[in-house]
Design a binder for these strands. Sequence first.
DNA 1: CTAGGGTTAG
Length: 601
Amino acid sequence: MNTIKLSTPYIRPIPSMVLNALQWTQCNPSFSPKNPSFLATNLIKSYFDKGLIKDARKLFDEMPERDVVAWTTMIAGYTSCNYDSLAWTVFNEMLKEGVKPNAFTVSSVLKCCKGMKCYSCGTLVHGLAIKHGLVGSIYVDNSLMDVYATCCNTMNEACMVFRDVYPKNGVSWTTLIAGYTHRGDGYGGLRAFQQMLSEGAEQSAFSFSIAVKACALTRASSHGVQLHATLVKYGLNSSLPVMNSIIDMYCWCQCLSEASQCFIEMSQKDLITWNTLIAGYKRSNSTKCLSVFTLMESQGFAPNCFTFTSVVAACADLSLLNCGQQIHANILRRGLDRNMALANSLIDMYAKCGSISDSRKIFDFQSLKDLVSWTSMMIAYGVHGYGEEAVKLFNEMIRSGIRPDRVAFMAVLSACSHAGLVIEGLRCFNSMVTEYNMVPDQDIYGCVVDLLGRAGKVEAAYELIKNMPVDPDDSVWGALLGSCKAHKLPNLGKLAAQFMLEARPDMARTFLMLSNLYASEGEWKDFAKMRKLMKGLGGRKEPGCSWIELNSDVYSFAVGDKLGHQTEMVYEVLSMMILHMEAVGYVPDLNYSLHDLEVGT
DNA sequence: CTAGGGTTAG
């Protein structure tokens, strides 16, 4: 048999990226590179666009000569894929190699400083920009503003940069408004927008959508309606992002019918439109949230993790285990179970639906856990009375290097208080002040008062209130009142209730509790007085109701409800349960329940 | 090759 000898002893393999590049040049016949690295830089960019970070880096490393453009492409590429610290490293390598940054480089690297929320990096780049004479480029100036707006505690630095931007363009204004809005200062954002209007700057979908978002933060629909009318004049009501934020604004301002009206009138909707409405309904009407979700699926929109976080939370609100499980299956089917925020909401849902072992399963399955994951699991244990587990988790969390915030402290404190773990709870409270230098707010004090009060240390709780550095609010007094009621201390209870009424005279529940205190003491005159005051509040009484999910149907019922043919059975089961309870020694406390009315706050 | 907008969690 003949062997074929290759004419060349060695054929260099053609890397796949070069093949791609060849295809690219064939597709672009007009292409004639003046600069040999032009092609490679373009390829790097398209690799980043496709998320092929490794390929981009490999090609960059293989380039014999790398100009500013190539370096800048790497920095911008890493940042666009959320690899901000890698972008920062590349920038430092570039400086070390003596390549001079241009305005493109600086604005890209400033975006990465913003992503890292790194003020010192920002100031460093600011200094370099001054050194290289790049301040004054509108791109550099705008991104400098953006860094200061996101990394500083106040808007002062950003405003100082803004003042010197000349001439300002639409982006400068939008960045200023967004600076206020993203830090939660809706009125600041609206003020900046108003200034933008009065200075006659050119309006766009960008400026309006962020202004509408600012308005949503203020929860004031009056401004929102004006903005809505104004943007129609500008013809911006065909912009999806603008209309999406209008829907969001109406939802936050409790104008649900306006929100759904806009939704219906929109000729085109995207996933965010649906998600916005679903999240909006979740906050005020979880049942409707679920029906919008059903409608969305029936119209062929594929839900994403944002959709599911709202829908799972709605199931949690309504304690719909069955429904929640089906949604969970849907999540698994779509491969979204690795999303951390979504897994966190599943932990909460299973806990609120009474299936705490499922909460734990999700928690254990999470490869990445954040503060919310740990806190959700602690709250789950807390409400189920597993105080020790919650404390254990709290300590584990700290060992894993996560710093607790006030919500995490509230979770562990309330878990301790429900399980009677006074010492552990007080230890956490102390560490909050001494180890974490946090200033406990009224909610935290409320938890500690509850912790002491439930354990019968009502006097100690009262002492704590008297020594609080901030004025106790109604939630703190409420916690004390609760423990006075439980431990039969009517005099201290009356005091607490009076303070509560001073703080919140509109709460019918306080009148109710106070009137019951008078009733338990036989002070019927005062009892009648409280009841009269309560009636004066008018329209605030709202019967509570319970509900149960049976075979995917939900049955709700209230006190004295007529359930039709099922009533008899319900009461039969109830009397059986009462017999069981009495058999194990339960003595009902009729002192208060006798006079309780169902009252909403 | 570069900047600005919308949805989410305890």
